[in-house]
Amino acid sequence: MPWNLTSDRPIYAQLIEKLQLDIITGHYKPGEKLPSVRDLASEASVNPNTMQKALSELERSGLVYAQRTSGRFITDDQELIKNTRNELARMQIRDFIRTMRQFDLDDDEILHLIQEIMKEEIE
C-alpha cells in the first residue's frame, strides 16, 4: 500500500496512522515481524529517525512490541487490535457527523441517508 504522506502535518503522526491501518486491516498479522526501521523508512521515503519515532509511539500504545535482538513484532492481543479499530472508526464517524451537520442536516436525516446508501451499496 502506498504511504501517501502530506506535508502539512507532522510525518510521524501520519506514519503512526498508516501503520495502525495496516495492523487493523490485517496487512500485518498479529504476531508478525515488522520490517526493519531502515526498510520501512526507505519504503515510505522518510527519515529513519521519523520512522523510529512513530514505531516508539506504537510500542507505547502496545500495538507493537520490541524483542531485544530480533526486531519489532505486531501484538498478539486481538482485543487491543479490535479496540484500536473501534477507536479509529469512532474518529472517522465523528468527523463525518461534523461535516454532515455543517451541511445543515439534522440527525434523523443523517441516519436516514446512511441507511439508504447502505442499502444501495449492498445491491
Partner: peptide
C-alpha cells in the same frame, strides 16, 4: 541519501527545492 544514511551521522542538505526534501528532514 536515505539508504546510505548512518544514524550516527548528520546530513546537511542545502536547497531551495523544499517540497522535494521536506519529508526526509528532521
Amino acid at each position: 541519501i536515505l539508504n546510505n544514511y548512518d544514524p550516527d551521522a548528520t546530513i546537511l542538505i542545502s536547497t531551495h527545492l523544499i517540497s522535494d526534501v521536506e519529508n526526509i528532514l528532521d
